[in-house]
Design a protein around this nucleic acid. Structure first.
Lengths: 110, 110
DNA sequence: AATAATGTTCGTATTTTTGCGAACATATAA
DNA sequence: TTATATGTTCGCAAAAATACGAACATTATT
């Protein structure tokens, strides 16, 4: 079945997802982490950690939030942990933000 | 003079602006307010307030934050206050988010 | 097995955000 | 002028986010 959601529902869902993405992106360190991951190929926790002035616990927590928002993913590799952008959701975020901001703003108001 | 900022600087500035926009968008009520403003022509405070279950003070505060982030603008009209999307910054946000998410994600990692 | 390296989780302190009633400010109406 | 309508600001309480050291778990190395 693929006819369950009405347009209204999926619109509300999209706003919810956008809120989740935006919230995760609403912190300087987390945005910097995303920017860092975008320009790296290797991205072990340690590589990320050594770029920031924060404690391990703090970075780990930010990564956890980015992950739970779906923007990144992690993979255990030996004793290390490899992080990277979550491609699928990255594309989803791209689409949702683009759609949200493209909306023709009414010329009337203000 | 228009040659002051290096690419690095403006990149950092862009991330900062993105963080500001994202933070403002990272709350359900504020996202709903934006969505509401996008589909309205008239947008007095009262019109917005009556759509949400929150107290006037709460809505007023959310509007204040959206405004200080640059996403909306307000205009006093008689005893009422008219709110709407800030077109210039809306376009800026559209560009910044699009640019951020378009980044070709490396195929290597994860 | 013992040690070292790498991250996560726990507990906690601090700060920030959120939400709201009450008081206030301003403009219109009576 | 007095009253009414419309929002904002203030002050405070509750909740959530942030940051970090210490303890813990897991894997690799000796």
């Amino acid at each position: 079945m693929r006819t369950y959601n009405s347009d209204m529902d999926s619109k509300a869902e999209n706003i919810e997802k956008l809120t989740t993405f935006a919230k995760a992106m609403g912190h300087p360190t987390r945005m910097e982490i995303l920017a860092f991951l975008l320009e790296q190929n290797t991205c072990y926790f340690g590589d990320i950690h050594e770029v920031f002035p924060n404690a391990k616990a703090t970075i780990s927590q930010h990564l956890k939030e980015l992950k739970s928002a779906g923007l990144i993913q992690g993979e255990i590799e030996g004793p290390k942990v490899k992080y990277c952008i979550n491609k699928e959701n990255w594309e989803l975020a791209r689409l949702l933000f683009a759609d949200f901001f493209k909306s023709n703003v009414k010329t009337k108001c203000c």
